[in-house]
Measured scan of single mutants.
Amino acid sequence: MEVRTIKVFTTVDNINLHTQVVDMSMTYGQQFGPTYLDGADVTKIKPHNSHEGKTFYVLPNDDTLRVEAFEYYHTTDPSFLGRYMSALNHTKKWKYPQVNGLTSIKWADNNCYLATALLTLQQIELKFNPPALQDAYYRARAGEAANFCALILAYCNKTVGELGDVRETMSYLFQHANLDSCKRVLNVVCKTCGQQQTTLKGVEAVMYMGTLSYEQFKKGVQIPCTCGKQATKYLVQQESPFVMMSAPPAQYELKHGTFTCASEYTGNYQCGHYKHITSKETLYCIDGALLTKSSEYKGPITDVFYKENSYTTTIK
């Protein structure tokens, strides 16, 4: 009895394709271990004539594949690729409408935090270190965002349907971005203890939790000093293409032309909904596939993004 075979390709990165001759009487799992086709788990399936010449994702289970996976995804987590594939199996079914010149995501599976993050990423200057993220990001900007969303979920250790947080998501993504040249110098002034300067680099240099107003941050924000008295913390120097200011959701007025974009969060910790506000020729609110415009805006804002380049204080 002759062994019926077909020729397929296996890959971990969709760049390096490895030619395989597979036995049609055995499952993919018996031949390769966990195997995925377009995100779908085909591990328990036997090869079919229609699979001839198709590319299958496999887990990096030998040295060659491990090197290829690390170079593309910059992670050695053995569960990463499987999590990416199972997320992709959902995100490829989502709709990605162009809204006001940006790629958004039609609401499904509690994905409003991903839509808000995706919209924000198209408006701030950011370059990702893992080629996987950078490639998928370019495709997302062009309207094909399924891979990018699935990668975000995998890097953030999230599953489809789980509630997510924009600030946490951005923080994970910033860790995989090139923020080497970003720098922030802060000064804390206390009447009792004097003053202390701190220099922050990388992710810490672009994120701040405690106030939404970048102007206020430049002037000074009140913080408790270690001595128990009130101290003032203010920005001395900022070198970065953008800054992200966050605070627990509270009524906040966004003035046209003073910011790049913002995240609105309605609801409580267990259950809520994100919308995205962007400042173009007027203010726009993007909620999944829905767009509304207004000249002014007041609502429960939790993150505001500002364009920056270089700032030095005039406070002496």
Results as ranks from 00 to 15, higher is better:
residue 143 G to N: 04
residue 127 K to N: 13
residue 86 S to H: 11
residue 46 K to V: 13
residue 227 C to A: 01
residue 197 Q to T: 13
residue 196 Q to R: 13
residue 81 L to S: 00
residue 278 T to G: 10
residue 292 T to G: 06
residue 212 L to Q: 01
residue 233 K to I: 15
residue 296 E to P: 12
residue 115 A to W: 05
residue 46 K to W: 15
residue 30 Q to A: 13
residue 60 P to F: 15
residue 138 Y to E: 15
residue 246 S to N: 02
residue 58 V to I: 11
residue 231 A to Q: 02
residue 299 G to F: 06
residue 149 C to Y: 01
residue 250 A to N: 11
residue 201 K to M: 10
residue 153 L to E: 00
residue 207 M to G: 01
residue 208 Y to P: 03
residue 171 S to M: 14
residue 96 Y to C: 05
residue 268 N to F: 15
residue 96 Y to S: 04
residue 13 D to N: 15
residue 115 A to Y: 07
residue 144 E to V: 05
residue 185 V to D: 02
residue 123 Q to K: 01
residue 153 L to N: 00
residue 37 L to F: 11
residue 5 T to N: 14
residue 272 G to M: 09
residue 283 L to D: 00
residue 309 N to T: 15
residue 262 A to D: 00
residue 235 L to G: 01
residue 54 K to V: 14
residue 186 L to K: 07
residue 23 D to G: 11
residue 9 F to H: 14
residue 253 E to G: 00
residue 94 W to A: 06
residue 16 N to L: 08
residue 240 S to L: 01
residue 193 C to N: 05
residue 228 G to H: 01
residue 164 G to S: 04
residue 81 L to M: 11
residue 246 S to Y: 05
residue 9 F to T: 11
residue 48 H to P: 13
residue 186 L to H: 01
residue 110 N to M: 04
residue 72 Y to K: 09
residue 298 K to R: 14
residue 65 L to T: 14
residue 162 E to I: 02
residue 210 G to M: 03
residue 65 L to M: 14
residue 238 Q to V: 01
residue 150 A to G: 05
residue 281 E to Q: 04
residue 140 A to R: 03
residue 16 N to V: 11
residue 157 N to G: 08
residue 117 A to F: 05
residue 310 S to V: 14
residue 34 P to R: 13
residue 223 I to C: 15
residue 157 N to K: 13
residue 81 L to T: 07
residue 164 G to M: 02
residue 229 K to F: 08
residue 204 E to W: 07
residue 312 T to L: 13
residue 76 T to N: 09
residue 125 E to V: 03
residue 151 L to M: 06
residue 295 S to G: 11
residue 233 K to S: 11
residue 124 I to A: 01
residue 16 N to S: 10
residue 81 L to P: 06
residue 255 K to T: 08
residue 221 V to N: 00
residue 145 A to I: 00
residue 277 I to L: 03
residue 222 Q to T: 10
residue 192 T to I: 08
residue 32 F to G: 06
residue 218 K to W: 06
residue 234 Y to W: 07
residue 248 P to F: 09
residue 148 F to P: 04
residue 174 F to D: 01
residue 128 F to V: 03
residue 58 V to A: 03
residue 269 Y to C: 11
residue 216 Q to G: 05
residue 170 M to S: 01
residue 276 H to D: 03
residue 302 T to N: 03
residue 73 Y to F: 09
residue 104 S to R: 03
residue 305 F to I: 14
residue 111 N to L: 00
residue 153 L to H: 03
residue 176 H to F: 13
residue 14 N to D: 11
residue 129 N to F: 03
residue 69 A to M: 14
residue 313 T to N: 15
residue 91 T to L: 05
residue 51 H to S: 03
residue 97 P to C: 11
residue 104 S to H: 09
residue 113 Y to I: 00
residue 297 Y to I: 11
residue 93 K to G: 10
residue 122 Q to Y: 04
residue 208 Y to Q: 00
residue 191 K to V: 14
residue 99 V to G: 12
residue 192 T to L: 09
residue 158 K to G: 05
residue 220 G to D: 02
residue 149 C to S: 07
residue 175 Q to V: 00
residue 38 D to S: 09
residue 105 I to D: 01
residue 50 S to N: 13
residue 295 S to V: 07
residue 277 I to T: 00
residue 154 A to F: 01
residue 62 D to A: 07
residue 11 T to A: 07
residue 300 P to F: 14
residue 117 A to I: 12
residue 114 L to W: 06
residue 171 S to H: 15
residue 145 A to L: 01
residue 30 Q to I: 15
residue 61 N to C: 15
residue 151 L to T: 01
residue 32 F to T: 12
residue 267 G to P: 13
residue 212 L to P: 05
residue 207 M to N: 06
residue 140 A to D: 05
residue 168 E to G: 14
residue 9 F to I: 08
residue 254 L to G: 00
residue 206 V to S: 03
residue 138 Y to C: 14
residue 205 A to W: 02
residue 75 T to G: 01
residue 138 Y to A: 14
residue 312 T to E: 07
residue 1 M to I: 09
residue 128 F to P: 05
residue 200 L to C: 08
residue 99 V to S: 10
residue 141 R to S: 09
residue 12 V to N: 06
residue 184 R to V: 01
residue 300 P to V: 14
residue 146 A to Q: 08
residue 80 F to R: 04
residue 248 P to N: 14
residue 127 K to E: 15
residue 142 A to G: 12
residue 305 F to K: 10
residue 65 L to S: 11
residue 242 F to Q: 00
residue 25 S to M: 13
residue 101 G to A: 07
residue 120 T to I: 15
residue 249 P to I: 09
residue 61 N to M: 14
residue 267 G to C: 14
residue 271 C to D: 06
residue 256 H to T: 11
residue 115 A to D: 01
residue 36 Y to K: 05
residue 83 R to P: 04
residue 263 S to E: 01
residue 79 S to R: 13
residue 275 K to P: 01
residue 154 A to C: 08
residue 43 T to R: 10
residue 160 V to I: 09
residue 299 G to A: 09
residue 4 R to H: 14
residue 215 E to M: 02
residue 120 T to G: 01
residue 135 D to Q: 08
residue 283 L to A: 03
residue 223 I to F: 10
residue 102 L to K: 08
residue 284 Y to P: 01
residue 103 T to D: 09
residue 303 D to V: 06
residue 281 E to G: 07
residue 224 P to E: 11
residue 310 S to F: 15
residue 33 G to S: 04
residue 19 T to D: 13
residue 15 I to E: 11
residue 107 W to F: 02
residue 178 N to P: 03
residue 269 Y to E: 15
residue 154 A to L: 05
residue 135 D to K: 10
residue 67 V to N: 15
residue 35 T to Y: 05
residue 281 E to A: 05
residue 104 S to M: 11
residue 138 Y to I: 14
residue 253 E to N: 08
residue 106 K to V: 15
residue 44 K to L: 13
residue 82 G to V: 13
residue 103 T to V: 14
residue 200 L to T: 07
residue 301 I to M: 06
residue 51 H to M: 07
residue 144 E to P: 01
residue 140 A to Q: 02
residue 76 T to Q: 15
residue 101 G to F: 00
residue 67 V to Q: 12
residue 134 Q to C: 08
residue 93 K to E: 11
residue 8 V to G: 05
residue 99 V to N: 09
residue 172 Y to H: 12
residue 134 Q to K: 09
residue 120 T to P: 06
residue 153 L to T: 02
residue 11 T to V: 07
residue 125 E to F: 07
residue 126 L to N: 00
residue 91 T to D: 11
residue 74 H to L: 13
residue 260 T to R: 05
residue 156 C to T: 11
residue 172 Y to M: 15
residue 266 T to G: 06
residue 179 L to T: 03
residue 15 I to H: 04
residue 83 R to Q: 09
residue 157 N to I: 06
residue 144 E to Q: 11
residue 130 P to E: 06
residue 182 C to H: 08
residue 145 A to N: 01
residue 8 V to T: 06
residue 259 F to M: 08
residue 297 Y to G: 02
residue 140 A to V: 14
residue 22 V to T: 10
residue 166 V to Q: 03
residue 118 L to I: 07
residue 53 G to I: 08
residue 33 G to H: 10
residue 310 S to N: 10
residue 40 A to W: 12
residue 84 Y to E: 05
residue 302 T to A: 15
residue 241 P to I: 01
residue 156 C to Q: 03
residue 306 Y to Q: 00
residue 204 E to F: 06
residue 113 Y to Q: 03
residue 213 S to Y: 05
residue 119 L to S: 02
residue 190 C to A: 06
residue 17 L to K: 12
residue 273 H to G: 04
residue 39 G to Q: 09
residue 258 T to K: 07
residue 129 N to S: 08
residue 19 T to F: 11
residue 259 F to T: 01
residue 77 D to N: 08
residue 129 N to W: 15
residue 108 A to E: 12
residue 115 A to L: 01
residue 294 S to N: 09
residue 186 L to Q: 09
residue 131 P to W: 08
residue 99 V to A: 08
residue 29 G to M: 12
residue 48 H to W: 14
residue 213 S to I: 04
residue 3 V to F: 12
residue 291 L to H: 15
residue 65 L to G: 13
residue 272 G to Y: 05
residue 195 Q to L: 13
residue 138 Y to W: 14
residue 181 S to Q: 15
residue 312 T to C: 07
residue 23 D to Y: 09
residue 8 V to Q: 05
residue 76 T to C: 15
residue 115 A to K: 00
residue 172 Y to N: 14
residue 293 K to V: 11
residue 248 P to C: 07
residue 53 G to H: 11
residue 249 P to Q: 02
residue 168 E to K: 13
residue 246 S to W: 04
residue 299 G to L: 00
residue 178 N to L: 05
residue 200 L to G: 05
residue 6 I to V: 12
residue 308 E to W: 01
residue 42 V to C: 12
residue 56 F to G: 03
residue 263 S to D: 00
residue 7 K to A: 13
residue 303 D to Y: 00
residue 273 H to I: 05
residue 166 V to D: 05
residue 315 I to C: 15
residue 81 L to V: 13
residue 66 R to P: 07
residue 305 F to L: 01
residue 223 I to D: 06
residue 155 Y to Q: 06
residue 131 P to F: 02
residue 244 M to P: 02
residue 271 C to Y: 13
residue 201 K to W: 14
residue 46 K to E: 13
residue 123 Q to R: 04
residue 36 Y to S: 04
residue 40 A to V: 13
residue 51 H to D: 14
residue 207 M to P: 08
residue 3 V to M: 10
residue 38 D to T: 09
residue 244 M to E: 02
residue 218 K to R: 03
residue 152 I to A: 08
residue 119 L to E: 01
residue 79 S to I: 06
residue 10 T to F: 07
residue 176 H to K: 06
residue 228 G to D: 03
residue 192 T to H: 06
residue 242 F to H: 04
residue 223 I to E: 10
residue 41 D to E: 10
residue 310 S to A: 10
residue 109 D to I: 03
residue 93 K to Q: 12
residue 230 Q to F: 14
residue 216 Q to P: 01
residue 100 N to Y: 12
residue 44 K to F: 13
residue 4 R to M: 12
residue 137 Y to E: 04
residue 77 D to G: 01
residue 168 E to F: 07
residue 180 D to Q: 15
residue 173 L to I: 13
residue 214 Y to H: 03
residue 103 T to C: 09
residue 280 K to F: 11
residue 118 L to M: 09
residue 114 L to A: 04
residue 35 T to L: 08
residue 247 A to I: 01
residue 10 T to N: 09
residue 309 N to S: 13
residue 230 Q to K: 10
residue 211 T to F: 03
residue 243 V to F: 00
residue 160 V to Y: 00
residue 195 Q to T: 15
residue 156 C to V: 08
residue 266 T to N: 06
residue 78 P to Q: 11
